[in-house]
């Protein structure tokens, strides 16, 4: 039994017959880092929202660790593109929100440890409005980890960051993944990001899975390695198949 099991998922938003997700199936193993790659509007966020339990599929089912997904749960942490931190809480209270809601007596100890892990020690009393985008996103990750979820769902968490910060955050996320041994589903529209991060890349196109590919490159990966280029080209080919402009 795979850790995450997505079976024959269909989802539409009201307009009849038009499926945003059309028969999507895939599996994720425990501790695996999977990237879902696709153009904007192809249904990536819809897929993540279904996995998180925010919305319900028309048909099909999702199970995580043997349990069917029917509503949001602290077992599935989510990191949002616009971080979604609570502006009225300082960093410590943001991270402690989950464990406190779950009546965990160690809420603050856990939170402090996580804040240290994302390299923001000393910022506990600071409010989100004075953080940079990259810092806010790291708090978002710490907050999602604070309830000790089995699965971390990340919806283009680096999408709003500048190029330099993105690079740094990629390394950071891999480090956090190795330290925490979580299973991660990471959504992106950047081919380079997917190839850099993932154990496996699932390419989503017009609501269907059109490629499910293991990335067999040793970490740390270099964008300039020939193997990296090969994967990049392969994904470009799939993603731009019917477009006029194919660079190559």
């Amino acid at each position: 039994m795979p850790f995450v099991n997505v079976r024959n998922l269909f989802k539409s938003y009201g307009d009849a017959g038009k499926y945003v997700l059309n028969d999507v199936s895939f599996e994720i193993n425990e501790n695996e880092f999977v990237c879902v790659l696709g153009h904007s509007g192809c249904g990536k966020s819809t897929l993540l929202n279904l996995l998180a339990g925010f919305i319900k599929p028309d048909k099909g089912e999702i199970s995580v660790n043997g349990q069917f997904v029917s509503k949001p749960s602290s077992q599935r942490g989510v990191v949002f593109q616009d971080h979604g931190l609570f502006p009225w809480y300082n960093i410590l209270d943001n991270v402690a929100f989950g464990p406190k809601a779950l009546k965990n007596k160690d809420a603050y100890r856990i939170s402090k440890r996580l804040i240290k892990m994302v390299d923001l020690e000393g910022y506990e009393k600071v409010f989100p409005s004075s953080l940079s985008g990259g810092m806010a996103q790291r708090v978002g990750i710490a907050r999602a980890l604070a309830t000790n979820p089995q699965l971390l769902l990340m919806d283009e968490p680096l999408g709003a960051l500048d190029a330099m910060t993105r690079e740094k955050m990629r390394i950071e996320i891999l480090r956090i993944w190795k330290e925490t041994k979580k299973t991660i589903l990471f959504i992106t529209h950047s081919i380079a990001e997917a190839v850099y991060l993932a154990d496996r890349v699932i390419v989503l196109k017009e609501g269907s899975v059109c490629l499910d590919e293991k990335i067999e490159i040793e970490r740390p990966r270099s964008v300039h390695a020939p193997q990296f280029m090969d994967y990049t080209k392969k994904f470009e080919k799939v993603l731009f198949e019917h477009d006029e402009l194919v660079l190559d």
């Binding site: 998180a52 509503k71 949001p72 989510v78 949002f80 609570f86 989950g98 809601a101 907050r143």
Partner: peptide, 18 residues
Amino acid sequence: VNPTWIRSAMTLGATRYQ
């Protein structure tokens, strides 16, 4: 209220009242 805040709270295990 920003719906992302509500969604965040839901995935962090908050009850409706919380």
